[in-house]
Amino acid sequence: MIYTVTFNPSLDYVIQTDKLSPGGINRAVSEHIYPGGKGNNVSVILSNLGHKSRALGFVAGFTGDALEEMLKARGCYTDFIRLEEGFTRINVKINDGQETEINGQGPVITQEAIEELYERLDRLVKDDILVLAGSIPDTLPADMYEKIMARLNGRGIRIVVDATKDLLLNVLKYRPFLIKPNNHELAEMFGAVLNTEEEIIRHAAMLQKKGARNVLVSMAGDGALLLSEDGEIYRSRPPKGEVRNSVGAGDSMVAGFLTGYLNTGDHEKAFKLGIAAGSATAFMNWLAGRDEITALLGEQPSAYGL
């Protein structure tokens, strides 16, 4: 089973407007509400590609109810911990040719709720996959990912980490199965400026030396590269298309990689499916479906177990 954890999930209220005028009245051309949060995005794309996952995290209030129902409607299992106070945050995303975001704060997560999460994670067994994605709310310990991975260490659970700077660097000693920094996050980790692909590869290799088994680096319009645990380096430019949306593209890449790897056991196919999934989402207003993803593969979906 694949499990995803989102510590501060959201309802994403996505508004399209012709022009955003601060201080004035703005009218939407279109509006949609989607389940949000990086781990939840991974769960939705996995479902779209035929893999069930169980979404974990914390929800509260009527917005938490709506989030859970939306995920279930999209084929995801849920096992959220319900908080007694507050409500799941609403993130407002406005697109008028450029993206403007106003992200809610979210409810306070109590120590009792954290212990409930630990109990759920203790049920994971060998060969399960756990995806830890996104930032940690200010109300939680900054070493939350490290505590989870220390708790699960040595149990044969494959862990994916999509996080930034110290949150990622501090867990490498537990040999995560996959990490997915983008090129800017990679540069920030080392306090460096990475101008060339060779520099990006060299610094990604440093993360491997620190313990990461597979390092997937996304580079927006420049594509992505993968340093795999079998010593190979894979590179790819993105497919051509009009970029409409940056939200969820990285999460889609993670879900595509996991699907490709689980279906074929082949790092290169996993990488290619990750590129297709990430790009397909970038070309849409929200997360891509199976058809949009497979259309970008350039070969029969059956080659990827789809």
Results as ranks from 00 to 15, higher is better:
62 F>S: 07
71 L>K: 06
120 R>G: 07
84 E>P: 06
77 Y>N: 06
75 G>Q: 00
120 R>H: 11
84 E>Y: 06
63 T>I: 07
112 E>L: 13
70 M>C: 04
120 R>V: 08
113 A>I: 07
75 G>W: 00
103 N>W: 12
83 L>W: 00
73 A>W: 02
98 Q>R: 15
58 F>Y: 03
111 Q>G: 11
106 G>V: 04
89 R>Q: 03
106 G>D: 06
69 E>H: 09
95 N>I: 11
58 F>K: 02
95 N>S: 11
63 T>H: 11
75 G>R: 04
80 F>E: 02
81 I>L: 03
118 Y>A: 07
84 E>D: 14
76 C>I: 05
69 E>A: 03
67 L>M: 00
115 E>K: 14
89 R>M: 07
104 G>F: 07
115 E>Y: 12
61 G>F: 04
119 E>S: 15
78 T>V: 05
60 A>C: 06
118 Y>W: 10
114 I>H: 08
59 V>S: 04
81 I>M: 02
103 N>Y: 10
75 G>C: 06
114 I>T: 10
73 A>N: 09
105 Q>L: 15
97 G>E: 09
59 V>K: 06
63 T>W: 07
78 T>P: 00
89 R>K: 09
67 L>Y: 00
105 Q>C: 12
105 Q>D: 12
91 N>Q: 12
58 F>G: 01
104 G>A: 10
118 Y>N: 06
84 E>S: 07
77 Y>F: 15
79 D>E: 15
64 G>T: 01
82 R>A: 04
85 E>G: 08
92 V>R: 11
89 R>E: 01
83 L>D: 07
62 F>Y: 13
98 Q>Y: 14
100 T>I: 12
69 E>D: 13
90 I>W: 10
80 F>Y: 08
74 R>A: 08
116 E>A: 10
116 E>T: 10
114 I>P: 05
65 D>R: 02
106 G>Q: 04
103 N>R: 13
118 Y>F: 14
89 R>I: 05
116 E>G: 10
92 V>T: 15
63 T>L: 06
73 A>S: 10
64 G>L: 02
58 F>L: 03
117 L>F: 08
88 T>A: 07
62 F>I: 07
102 I>C: 12
57 G>Q: 04
84 E>V: 02
88 T>V: 09
115 E>C: 10
73 A>E: 09
77 Y>S: 03
114 I>D: 09
58 F>N: 02
121 L>M: 11
101 E>M: 15
91 N>G: 06
114 I>R: 14
111 Q>A: 13
78 T>R: 01
108 V>F: 15
100 T>L: 14
